[in-house]
């Protein structure tokens, strides 16, 4: 297992390399030169040139890339000109909030999705199956930002059960119950689409597994149906569910952008949108690379979990 984890970690290196290249190339497409963008159109040519040299922008593209990546590796993501502070500091300040939101949403969608899928498959064509199928179709079709807005209208404005936005109350908040009250709506709104996708997949994976011979064996030896479904069948179905969990984690992580906007959640997503609107290129670049790298890391965890769950995978 240790060797497999190491192998998987090593295989992430070219992926990370590819990601930085792609982000770098995308950012290099920006029309006009960044120095003018930073200094504004009234800047003197001398100032523009000085800044270009300072940023290394007068060098060939590939040299710029290696300078950039060298800095990244030393933890230097550059400086956000709009916020006038190091990019990495800003990202780290914000990332915790995103992690809490996306993490909660991910746990929600995994649990609810698998639960719904298994129940749906076990009661195929029954009332529960039809109800779940309908809710799932609705769930994967509704834009998360619209759902979030409607939830605010209902639960915050009409019923006044939950706070409408933010992560903590401005006065007297800051403890865990306060955070949870703020977290409920955004986490749920963020999880809905992924829940639907996971539920659908779990249902078909379960149907596929339930037809297999070893399920008949389990039944033939007198294993209780509950255990056949939630033990034997689900255990096997997880082999095809887990990779999808990995993919959905990516959707949840990046879908947080919308939810953070709707609920004024102080995370990386909102930071990115603000940075794009302010054309704060280094902040966008750093933020995208950082989140993508986290996602690559998460996928390694997913693969290791898969190998641990399925002994047939050569570790």
């Amino acid at each position: 297992m240790g060797a497999y984890i190491l192998k998987r970690l090593l295989s992430a290196i070219p992926v990370l390399f590819g990601i930085t290249v792609i982000v770098f190339l995308i950012m290099a497409m920006i029309p006009g030169d960044p120095a003018t963008a930073i200094l504004g159109s009234y800047a003197t040519p001398e100032n523009v040139e000085r800044l270009n040299r300072h940023l290394g922008l007068d060098r060939p593209l590939w040299q710029q890339y290696f300078i950039w990546i060298g800095n990244l590796l030393q933890g230097d993501f550059g400086r956000s000109f709009a916020l006038n502070r190091p990019v990495l500091d800003e990202i780290l300040d914000r990332f915790g909030a995103t992690l809490i939101l996306a993490g909660t949403a991910f746990v929600l969608c995994a649990l609810l999705g698998i639960l719904a899928g298994v129940v749906s498959a076990a009661r195929q064509y029954g009332l529960a199956d039809k109800a779940i199928t309908f809710v799932v179709i609705l769930g994967i079709s509704i834009p998360s930002f619209f759902l979030g807005m409607m939830m605010i209208l209902l639960f915050a404005v009409q019923l006044r059960w939950l706070p409408a936005s933010g992560m903590y109350s401005i006065w007297g908040g800051g403890d865990l119950p306060d955070l949870l009250r703020h977290l409920v709506m955004p986490a749920f709104a963020l999880s809905v689409v992924a829940t639907g996708v996971i539920a659908r997949l779990s249902r078909s994976a379960m149907l596929e597994v339930l037809r297999q011979d070893f399920i008949r064996t389990a039944r033939a030896k007198g294993v209780h149906e509950r255990r056949v479904i939630w033990g034997h069948a689900l255990r096997m179905a997880m082999v095809s569910i887990i990779p999808v969990l990995g993919i959905q984690a990516g959707f949840v992580l990046s879908g947080a952008v919308y939810i953070e906007m709707v609920f004024q959640w102080p995370g990386v997503g909102r930071m990115l949108v603000d940075a794009i609107l302010k054309r704060d290129i280094l902040l966008v670049q750093g933020g995208v690379v950082f989140v993508a790298a986290c996602y690559v890391g998460f996928n390694i965890i997913v693969d290791v979990a898969q190998a641990w769950l399925d002994p047939r995978i050569k570790t």
Binding site: G18, I26, V288
Partner: peptide, 25 residues
């Protein structure tokens, strides 16, 4: 396909954001 895999390693919306950031809204 290596290149395609690289693109798929991104969380989807994030890549779209990066492209919009470069091209402008």
């Amino acid at each position: 396909m290596r290149g395609v895999d690289m693109l798929m390693a991104f969380p989807y919306i994030l890549l779209a954001l990066a492209i919009v950031a470069a091209l402008g809204p």
